[in-house]
Design a protein around this nucleic acid. Sequence first.
DNA 1: CACGATTTGTACCTCCAGTTACATCCTTGC
DNA 2: GCAAGGATGTAACTGGAGGTACAAATCGTG
Lengths: 208, 208
Amino acid sequence: MRTPSMKGKATRRRIIDAAADLFHKQGVQATSPQQIMETSQTGKSQLYHHFRSKGGLVHEVLQHHIQSIREGSAAIDYEITSWSDLQRWFRAHAGLQEKYRMTRGCPFGTIGNEVTENDELIRRDLELLFEVVRNKLAGFFLRERTRGRLGPGANEAALADFCISSIQGAMLLGKIRRDRGTVDLAIDQALNYLAGFRRSVPRRRGSA
Amino acid sequence: MRTPSMKGKATRRRIIDAAADLFHKQGVQATSPQQIMETSQTGKSQLYHHFRSKGGLVHEVLQHHIQSIREGSAAIDYEITSWSDLQRWFRAHAGLQEKYRMTRGCPFGTIGNEVTENDELIRRDLELLFEVVRNKLAGFFLRERTRGRLGPGANEAALADFCISSIQGAMLLGKIRRDRGTVDLAIDQALNYLAGFRRSVPRRRGSA
DNA sequence: CACGATTTGTACCTCCAGTTACATCCTTGC
DNA sequence: GCAAGGATGTAACTGGAGGTACAAATCGTG
């Protein structure tokens, strides 16, 4: 495996995409090599040529997710620069879920849920993934504070975590109930809470 | 199977307890009949004598959870009659998680996350379970409103769902990070939000 | 105690997840 | 245009998940 070549990279990519979708749909445990092969139109040899094992594939899928978030090519936009962006970020999750007729949860949460005491490597991948997300959100809150648009009494990381865990809980409940209304309501409440920290910029006059 | 007898009931109970714990620990998919047999000190014949299939066992485990919640014998107390009870309810979840060294999530959420489009029966069980929980919480909020201790602008069911999804999200993130601090912070924020709806009872004077 | 029903033990079976081995076909850099 | 090694096809293997069959034991009730 010295120079990975075009065709190879394409195959590898197809496998990752297929696996990511299947993991999202039914979780890691419930997804067999067979299904991944069929969905990605590949054979067993490709699978094990490009990836050490199923666990290795999970790792690569998560790395791919992380990369997508970082470079802004993910299904959801994590570049938040305004409160309405934040709203959009929340609502995009509900939209994603609806796209799958409320039968799926969060792609990351679904995998995270399956982590056990023995999956230390996967757990760390997920930890990193959620840290990237948190940083995106916390970055926004920090900028808002800098501009005087954020009230006191909460730190940025905590607010970011609140966003993440709210959306995770909402999507889980939404999937169990197969009901978008549940998700929308939960999002409304989260936004409601966050709005409490919002400060309108004082008319430019007294500096302070 | 006309008259289930003492010994039989005990065995059945051991199996359900073992399965519930294993499902909580590692999820349904990752739990094999073998493991359930070992943990519950039973043989394969008992398993399939008392339960139709693995799916049937999952169903019975969930029914057992529902029953436990209803009759107040669950690991967590759902009888909420005061705001401090509500606080305790939240914190009990963090406590439960810590008991397992932050390696597990919520017993119900863990199963719920594994539900797919094809598990309609299990999904319904979980839907019911979460409705029972919601009713417990909503009941409290309703009583508070009746007594004039709840501000306007939110309905009881929505607040109850907010509690549930907050705790679900928090426990998932806590498990991924293996960090209780995350959970505690998330709970603080949820309580913070809820506190905004709390009204102190007006001095008993003007009726209305 | 006898009898039928319930409970348990033992053995077996099928299927497929997950993986490896190896041969063959392609790519591509020189 | 030809090696070197990357990409793919085919076959096979192991282990265990999930479940069935049936006989033996045990219970509990008249």
